[in-house]
Amino acid sequence: IRCIGVSNRDFVEGMSGGTWVDVVLEHGGCVTVMAQDKPTVDIELVTTTVSNMAEVRSYCYEASISDMASDSRCPTQGEAYLDKQSDTQYVCKRTLVDRGWGNGCGLFGKGSLVTCAKFTCSKKMTGKSIQPENLEYRIMLSVHGSQHSGMIVNDTGYETDENRAKVEVTPNSPRAEATLGGFGSLGLDCEPRTGLDFSDLYYLTMNNKHWLVHKEWFHDIPLPWHAGADTGTPHWNNKEALVEFKDAHAKRQTVVVLGSQEGAVHTALAGALEAEMDGAKGKLFSGHLKCRLKMDKLRLKGVSYSLCTAAFTFTKVPAETLHGTVTVEVQYAGTDGPCKIPVQMAVDMQTLTPVGRLITANPVITESTENSKMMLELDPPFGDSYIVIGVGDKKITHHWHRSGSTIGKAFEATVRGAKRMAVLGDTAWDFGSVGGVFNSLGKGIHQIFGAAFKSLFGGMSWFSQILIGTLLVWLGLNTKNGSISLTCLALGGVMIFLSTAVSA
């Protein structure tokens, strides 16, 4: 259960009878995928790494000078000259100064003066180019299975845990398959586009800190620079940016070097996208990844198990997540596992009318040892309800109150669905055939309105939902006002479609 501690969480529900669903994975976010007769899966884009970055340009932001020398000439005696002028490691300046009897010249006039100092770069920052084909995306998957609280967001041991898996995709191999043991396998067909235009970005490294910066900004930095990788004795261009020549006297000129420019660069980098280094690879934390999940090989585990009949206890007080759902960790005293956990939410304890829904599909106890633990997640209705676990006299209950409203949740879900469709863009549509167009249209309606429909009408039977949709269509056909007619027709059509397409 990876997503319960992530604030940016998206719930995606598969269409009834569908074998695939489109998701948008982004750094700092987590996606929970639910479908009829399929286990619930949490998917998170953990890291995006980039390798084989080529150094484009380096800037010196802290330097020192040494070996200063000057040469001067009297008027009419030609130009002052130093051998160091031809050495690229030196920074030199030529000027004219007033000369006369007082400073060793027989004539009054302008004399030539040249001053040089050896330039040494102490600290530099480097910009590297990123090729999209060198990106690698690491995705962690977790099935809502027989897990306890100690396994949440624990990325170790996934090789031997059938509840978890790690997959890596690249532009050259965008397809992967996550093996989930008894739950089958989940196929991923990803489109490795981060949403960032790397043709316009460089990877900047300064003092063990890293950013993504725009090329134009990078090339306009007014500091000494050299092109390409460091060859040991780089040729620094624009050395004068960190060196200041003071007022010249008759035979000498003082040279000083400016202080470190790291603070000024940090100020200019305010708002830039931060990154990290992992050995020789860069780690990015921006952008998104679009994936199509193929769920035809994914299956529920323990459908044929019998119900657990022994007593359950709450190991922890049920807690609310950031998303309005409830996490419950229970301990089973029996030894008759594997068995299914009898769990439901009810409005009252007399009729036990089921409300809400299970995020953890078909929760089971897989071990036959005593005191096995299991964590599950529920989506309670707004208002008061009861969490009921167990059967008969051994069942345990917990009162729950959820604040908020169904309308607010439906609106929030619609906005999130619209954002998801905007990110998917043209990849969500198939114009290759008439059937493809209608299929894409259905998927689009489901992406945007599916979660809201589930919130508003999830407790009704599909037949009642179709009746309401048919009534809206009838009202649309018999209303003389054009805008009201079109609105009723659209709402009725969407409702009829979703009542037959969205899983219960």
Rank of each mutant, 00 (worst) to 15 (best):
E136K: 08
T179S: 06
W236V: 01
G259W: 00
G127F: 05
F285V: 12
K373F: 06
R420L: 05
T470C: 15
V265Y: 11
A490E: 13
D393W: 13
E367T: 02
D247W: 08
I341G: 06
M15R: 03
Q350G: 13
D161A: 12
R57S: 02
N103Y: 07
V50S: 00
G150H: 10
N8H: 03
E276R: 00
E320H: 05
I484V: 15
C74L: 02
M125H: 07
S433V: 00
G279W: 03
E55G: 01
S483Y: 13
E55T: 15
N362R: 01
Q131N: 03
A165E: 13
M421T: 10
F449W: 13
S433G: 00
C60S: 04
S185I: 14
K283Y: 02
I221N: 08
D384K: 12
A248D: 03
L180F: 01
S199C: 02
V23T: 12
G187P: 00
E329I: 11
I466R: 00
V364H: 02
G417D: 09
G493C: 12
K251Y: 02
F312M: 11
L491G: 12
G442Y: 05
I448L: 02
V21S: 00
G232M: 09
G263K: 11
R416K: 15
E162Q: 12
L475P: 03
N238K: 13
L358E: 04
Q77W: 10
L96F: 15
L424E: 06
A241D: 05
L491Y: 12
H235L: 12
E240S: 00
L300Y: 04
E244W: 03
I468G: 14
G442R: 14
V423W: 05
T470Q: 01
S199M: 14
G29V: 01
C488N: 01
G157V: 15
L456C: 08
P171M: 11
F314T: 04
A241T: 14
N371D: 12
D430R: 02
H144I: 08
V434R: 01
G302N: 04
L358D: 06
G228W: 00
A422L: 15
A504P: 07
V153Q: 05
E274F: 10
G14I: 06
G432T: 15
A310R: 03
T120Q: 04
Y158E: 01
M495E: 13
K297S: 02
L456I: 14
G337Q: 12
G459K: 13
T366H: 08
A490I: 14
N52M: 08
A413C: 03
S464I: 03
K118C: 02
S70P: 06
G102A: 11
D87Y: 03
A272Y: 10
M277W: 06
V388I: 13
A227Y: 03
D348E: 15
G390H: 06
A248M: 11
A422C: 08
A311S: 10
T321F: 07
K128C: 14
A451N: 05
A410E: 03
V31R: 00
V303P: 00
V434D: 11
G492I: 06
G442K: 10
R99W: 12
V143R: 00
N52E: 03
C3K: 06
E13L: 04
D426E: 13
Y305Q: 11
D336Q: 13
E320C: 02
E79S: 09
D426R: 00
G184Y: 08
D430T: 06
F119A: 07
R357L: 02
L358A: 10
F245V: 03
G469E: 06
P192M: 08
T309C: 06
I466M: 08
D220H: 08
N154K: 11
H148M: 03
R175E: 11
I43G: 02
D189F: 06
H401G: 01
V255Q: 03
V169Q: 06
T414W: 10
E55A: 13
G404S: 06
V303I: 13
G102W: 07
G458N: 11
T179W: 08
L201N: 03
G425C: 07
Q465D: 10
D220L: 03
F312P: 03
L307T: 09
K395N: 03
L441N: 07
G408F: 08
G181K: 04
D379I: 03
A333F: 07
R138C: 02
D296E: 12
F431N: 10
H226V: 14
K283L: 02
Y81S: 10
S405M: 07
D220M: 11
R402Y: 11
R164H: 14
V330L: 15
D37C: 03
W462D: 10
K209V: 06
M495Y: 07
I221A: 02
V6K: 02
E377V: 05
Q147D: 07
W101D: 06
K340N: 06
P39D: 08
A117F: 03
Y81P: 02
A280V: 13
S304W: 03
A178L: 14
D98T: 04
F314H: 01
A80H: 08
V494F: 13
L498K: 09
H446G: 02
F245A: 02
H398C: 01
F382H: 08
D379K: 04
H399K: 02
H398Y: 15
C308K: 07
E262P: 04
D336S: 13
V423E: 02
K251A: 06
W211Y: 13
G476T: 03
G28Q: 05
Q85L: 10
P174K: 08
R292S: 02
S499A: 15
L289I: 15
T32M: 08
E62D: 15
G5M: 10
F218T: 04
K239P: 10
V24L: 08
H210R: 11
L376C: 02
G14C: 05
C105T: 03
L456Q: 10
L498A: 02
D155G: 11
T231Q: 09
G469P: 06
M375R: 00
A272L: 06
T88G: 01
C121R: 10
T160P: 00
T360M: 09
L293P: 09
V494Y: 12
A264V: 13
M140A: 14
C291R: 09
E159N: 02
T194F: 00
L475Y: 13
S86C: 01
T427M: 13
D278R: 06
H214M: 12
T487V: 14
Y137C: 12
L204Y: 10
A250H: 06
L456R: 08
R357A: 02
S372I: 03
D42I: 05
N172W: 11
I365N: 11
L45C: 09
S433M: 07
L300T: 01
S433K: 03
V23W: 07
F438Y: 01
S142N: 14
L293K: 04
E191K: 12
K110F: 06
K294Y: 07
P380H: 04
L441P: 13
L378S: 01
A229V: 13
A410V: 13
S368H: 04
T315P: 01
G302Q: 04
A63T: 08
E240I: 07
Y203E: 11
K340A: 03
G425V: 00
I448F: 03
G195L: 06
L293D: 04
K209P: 01
H446N: 11
L352G: 07
N371A: 02
E274A: 07
A428I: 03
V256F: 14
L204Q: 10
A418M: 11
V50N: 04
N163C: 04
G492M: 10
R416E: 05
I468L: 14
A35H: 02
A452M: 13
K93A: 12
D379H: 05
G302E: 09
L25K: 08
K239G: 02
R99S: 09
E216I: 05
